[in-house]
Design a protein around this nucleic acid. Structure first.
Lengths: 330, 330
DNA sequence: ATGAAAGCGCTAACAC
DNA sequence: GTGTTAGCGCTTTCAT
C-alpha cells in the first residue's frame, strides 16, 4: 500500500492532524513544524489520497467535460483549453463523448455528476429543459450556448457573421446565399441571426437555404442549390460544408472567387491549406475552454460567484475565396 | 447531501451490509430481500459513492489516458476509442494533454496513477527507461509503441509501408524518397524499418531525407530536397507533411501524379478532400484505443492476464496522387 | 442469509 | 499551535 498520512505523522513525530494542516492550511502550523512535516512528506513521497479527502470535503478536485464528438476539431480544441486550464488549478478532467446523441449527453453528465465538482457541457442540440435539469444535478457551464440562468462561455458568432457580410458587401456583393447548418443547433441560430441583422442593415438580398448536414456532403448538395439562385457569394455554416461547396464548384467548372465568392466558419487547419485558401471566421476554441473552467471554478469558490455568461471575440480571416463579383463593373 | 446506503437500508428495513451485498454480490442475498433492496435503491435514486467504495476496494473505476496533443486527430481518434470502450465497462476516463512535452507526460502519468486503475499512454518520444518507471507506478498500456514487458496496442505501420512500396514499385517507380519524421519517434523508426525492408526486397533505390518536423512546413521544406534528388515518388512520414509537399510542388509547377507520385500516412479526413486526393495509409486509431482498454482491463482482472502486445492492421488507400512514372515507356 | 462493527485515509471540530 | 476524536460512505470480516 502507498504511504499514508499516519506514516508521515509518525516519522515527523507529530499527530496526523498536524500533517493534514501543514498540507492544506499551512498558516495554522508553526513554521518549523511545517517544514519538518513537509520534508518528511517529500522524503517519503507522500501523496494525499484524493478519494479519502473528497469523502470528507465533498469536493473531488475533478472536472468533467462532455462533447458530442471527439473527432471534431472544434470540440477537441475546447477540450484542450479545458484540460490545460484545469491543470493549472490542479484539477483533473474526465472526458466523455456522446457520439452526437443528446440522450447520451444527459446520461453522461448525470453519471459524472457524482465524481466531479462541475461539468462543462458542449451540447448544441440538447433540449433546454434537459439542460436545466442537469444544472440542478451539478455545477454546469455551457460552451457556445446561452440558456438563461446557466453560466456559459460563448464565442461571438453573431459578430463573426457581421464581419463576413460587411466584408462581402464591401467587395460589392448584393445577393448572398446562406447555407444553414442544423436548425436545432444554437450555433446555427446565432450565426443566422447575426447574418440577418447585417444583411438587413446593408439592404442586400439574402437567400436562405437548407438546413444541410454540417458536413462535406452537405456542402456538395448545397452548392448546386446556391448556384441555381444566381447568387454571387455563398456563406456556409462551417468550414467543412464550405470545403464541400468548393469541391462541387470546381467539378462544375465554376471558378472561386472569380465567379462566386465563398466563406466558411471555424478556421479549421484545413481552411488555410485548401486551394484556394478559404476565407473564414476563426473561433477562439481553446480560450473558450479555458474561460469555461474559469467560470466553473469561480462558481465553486467559497462565495459561489455570480452566474456569468461571457463572450469571446471571433475574427474574420480573409484568404483567397472572396473577391469582388465578376459583374461589378463600377 | 445525496442519498446514501443508510437511507436505502432504513427504507428497506435491512442493514447496510445487506444493501451493500445486494448491490455488489447479489448471490449472497436471498432473492426476495435483494429485490426489495434493489427496488428501494432505484426508487430513491441511490447511486453508490465511488470514492468511498474505492477507499475500501482500492479500485477507482477510472482509467487515464495521456496524449501529446489533443489537436492531433490521430490522438483524439485513439481517445475516442478509449472513451467508448471504457464506458462499455463502466469505467470513466481522465484525459491529459502534455503539449508534446515528454517531461510533462511523465508527471501526468504519475499524477493520474493515484486516481485510476491504469493508464493508457501515447508517447512516441518518452525515453524507454522512463516508460518502465511509469509502468512500475501504475498499470500501463502503450499505444503504437513497443517496450519489452509492457502491454501495447499497436498498428502495423511496417506493413503499411510495405503496401506503399509494393504499390509504387508495381506502378514502375525505381527511385523513391522517404521524408523522415522525428528520429526519436517510435513510429518513424517503425515506418522506416518496413520501408527499408520492402525497398531492399524489390531492389529499388531509396533516398532517405530528413528528419523533418512532422508538419505542413516540414513538407514544404522537404519537397525541394526530394525534387533535387531526381526521384519519381515521394513517401512522406505522414499526411500533414504530404500536404505540405503537395502545396510546394504545385507552387513549383510540378504535376502530381504526372511528374512525381506522393503518399502520406494516417488517412486524415483531409487526405480524401485535397486536390488531388492523397494516396495514404489508414490507421485503425479508434480500434487501437479500444484494444488498449481491453488489454488494460484484462491485466486488471482477478488473475492479472498476461502481458500482451497486439497489432492491428493498417490499410493502403489508393487515391489520386500515385501513378506510373512519366519516364516509364515500357 | 443477515447484522454488528471495524476500518479504508483523510479533515474538521473540539479540547487543551 | 497541536493532539484527540468523530466521522465521510462504503465493504468486509466475524458472528449469529
Amino acid at each position: 500500500m502507498a504511504v499514508t498520512i499516519r506514516d508521515v505523522a509518525r516519522q515527523a513525530e507529530v499527530s496526523v492532524a498536524t500533517v493534514s494542516r501543514a498540507l492544506t492550511s499551512p498558516e495554522l502550523v508553526r513554521a518549523s513544524t511545517r517544514e519538518r512535516v513537509l520534508a518528511v512528506a517529500a522524503d517519503l513521497g507522500y501523496q494525499p489520497n484524493l478519494a479519502a479527502r473528497g469523502l470528507i470535503t465533498g469536493r473531488t478536485g475533478n472536472l468533467g467535460i462532455v462533447v458530442p464528438d471527439l473527432n471534431n476539431p472544434f470540440f477537441t480544441g475546447v477540450l484542450k483549453g479545458v484540460q490545460s486550464q484545469a491543470r493549472q488549478s490542479s484539477y483533473a478532467v474526465f472526458v466523455a463523448d456522446s457520439d452526437e446523441d443528446p440522450a447520451a449527453e444527459r446520461d453522461l453528465v448525470l453519471a459524472m455528476a457524482k465524481q466531479v465538482d462541475g461539468v462543462i457541457l458542449c451540447s448544441p442540440g440538447l433540449e433546454e429543459q434537459v439542460v436545466r435539469e442537469l444544472a440542478r444535478a451539478t455545477s454546469l457551464v455551457l460552451i457556445n450556448r446561452r440558456v438563461r440562468g446557466i453560466p456559459a462561455a460563448l464565442m461571438s458568432s453573431g459578430s463573426g457573421m457581421r464581419q463576413v457580410i460587411d466584408h462581402l458587401v464591401a467587395l460589392g456583393h448584393g445577393r448572398i446565399a446562406y447555407l444553414n447548418g442544423p436548425r436545432t443547433s444554437w450555433s446555427n441560430r446565432e450565426r443566422r441571426r447575426g447574418l440577418k441583422a447585417a444583411v438587413q442593415r446593408h439592404g442586400v438580398d439574402l437567400v436562405d437555404l437548407g438546413p444541410f448536414p454540417p458536413r462535406y456532403e452537405g456542402g456538395l448538395q448545397a452548392a448546386d442549390l446556391a448556384l441555381a439562385e444566381g447568387v454571387t457569394a455563398i456563406v456556409a455554416y462551417n468550414d467543412i460544408m464550405a470545403l464541400g461547396v468548393l469541391a462541387r464548384l470546381r467539378d462544375r467548372g465554376v471558378s472561386v472567387p472569380g465567379q462566386v465568392s465563398l466563406t466558411g466558419f471555424d478556421d479549421l487547419m484545413f481552411a488555410a491549406l485548401c486551394q484556394p485558401a478559404l476565407t473564414t471566421v476563426a473561433m477562439p476554441v481553446e480560450p473558450t475552454g479555458r474561460l469555461g473552467v474559469d467560470l466553473l471554478l469561480s462558481r465553486l469558490g467559497r462565495d459561489g460567484g455570480a452566474i456569468r455568461q461571457e463572450e469571446l471575440d471571433t475574427q474574420l480571416i480573409v484568404r483567397a475565396t472572396t473577391a469582388p463579383p465578376s459583374d461589378s463593373r463600377n
